[in-house]
């Protein structure tokens, strides 16, 4: 199986080198760093280390970065795409478990923090639980860690990203995929806390994110048809 790991990076100069080295040493899959027009020297660090990097001329957000990765994977005929954060929170040693799950026939494998472990109680996890509930109501399936940024997609799911430009690397896409009758499996992984740099989620952005997710899940993705209309 041809596997591509896409690592979206925006202002991750402090983390990117470590993240990519982790990927290189712990896996033998192809990877692609997507530098979303970082203002710091992320690009220079990648070029200095001879990383496989693609640089966008305009900053356009995470969704655009992932979509570009999907296009690249589609054009180069990859079987599996793994979305992997460039901020050092994910560990590359778990990626082979995700690929194994895809090999067994799942369409999307999620690197989940809460398959065997309990969800801790915090404001952020409350948001995560609410999204889990929304997914349960609209699709009947339980996804314990919907906000996880570590996901593997198979060819069928990649194709969906190419067809539908409104798909984001967020939980509402999982509802869309479930409505398309895709199989989603969660794999237990560990995630570290962010070492350097700042998360883009401040309280206002978090609220915005939750409102967006709810509207999208309940009013848009929940009425997805299982077959594409031609």
């Amino acid at each position: 199986m041809k596997v591509l790991i896409i690592i979206p990076a925006y202002n991750e100069a402090l983390n990117i080198e470590k993240t990519v080295k982790d990927v290189i040493t712990n896996t033998n899959y192809d990877y692609l760093v997507i530098n979303d027009c970082s203002k710091d020297n992320t690009k220079e660090i990648c070029e200095k280390n001879n990383f496989n990097v693609i640089s966008l001329p305009i900053n356009y957000g995470l969704t655009s970065g992932i979509q570009l990765g999907m296009k690249y994977a589609y054009n180069n005929d990859y079987d599996v795409v793994i979305q992997f954060d460039g901020d050092g929170q994910h560990e590359a040693k778990y990626l082979k478990d995700l690929v194994e799950s895809i090999e067994k026939g799942t369409n999307i494998a999620i690197g989940s923090r809460f398959v065997t472990k309990k969800k801790p109680f915090s404001f952020r996890m409350l948001g995560s639980s609410l999204i889990t509930a929304a997914i349960k109501i609209t699709t009947g399936k339980t996804i314990k860690d919907p906000t996880s940024g570590m996901r593997a997609y198979d060819k069928k799911a990649i194709k969906e990203f190419i067809i539908n430009a409104s798909l984001t690397p967020e939980p509402d896409t999982l509802v869309y995929m479930l409505k398309k009758k895709m199989k989603i499996e969660e794999i237990q992984v560990e995630m570290k806390d962010r070492e350097f740099g700042e998360s883009y989620l401040n309280p206002i952005k978090s609220m915005e994110y939750m409102v967006n997710m709810f509207l999208s899940i309940i009013f848009i993705r929940a009425i997805t048809r299982s077959k594409n209309i031609k």
């Binding site: 693609i54 640089s55 966008l56 305009i58 655009s64 430009a165």
Partner: peptide, 16 residues
């Protein structure tokens, strides 16, 4: 915005 995004992707892929 969609068109700009596509252009953005196109330029990035060509550069690459």
């Amino acid at each position: 915005s969609e068109k700009i995004k596509d252009l953005n992707h196109y330029i990035a892929l060509e550069d690459y």
